[in-house]
Amino acid sequence: MKICQFSLSAEPLSPVLLSRALSDTAAGAFVSFEGWVRNHNRGKTVVALEYEVYQALALKEGERIVAEAIAKFGLIGAGACHRYGLLGLGEIAVWVGATAPHRCQAFAGAAYIIDEIKHRLPIWKKEYYATGSTAWVHCSEHSH
């Protein structure tokens, strides 16, 4: 039974717990990715981020993305979790993990999942700037 997990969390993410769920003695490689809240974007000083999510559809689409990665790259297992709500600098906004017999598949699988999450998950990001202003940003507006 392949592990295929996608979740949303209002609480801080725990990479230790998330990666433990993927442990499998058939795996020779485990690749994880963490997206962190960065202090700048497009020349502006960012002090916090807020994610708003359409939960029911995001859960379905997130599971589809993880399942696609498993099928496409022959992964043993994969998982991802996205935070929502208000996040401070340095917090983990998204976690992705992929296991495979060999590293190439695991790297490719993890990259596929985060790329698809950025473009397909119905979740929105509002940046809070040092100036006191805010803005909704989307993935075509900033460098990845």
Partner: peptide
């Protein structure tokens, strides 16, 4: 019905 403006995961 939900209209989904451009998204920004990650």
């Amino acid at each position: 019905v939900v209209f989904i403006p451009p998204v920004a995961g990650g």
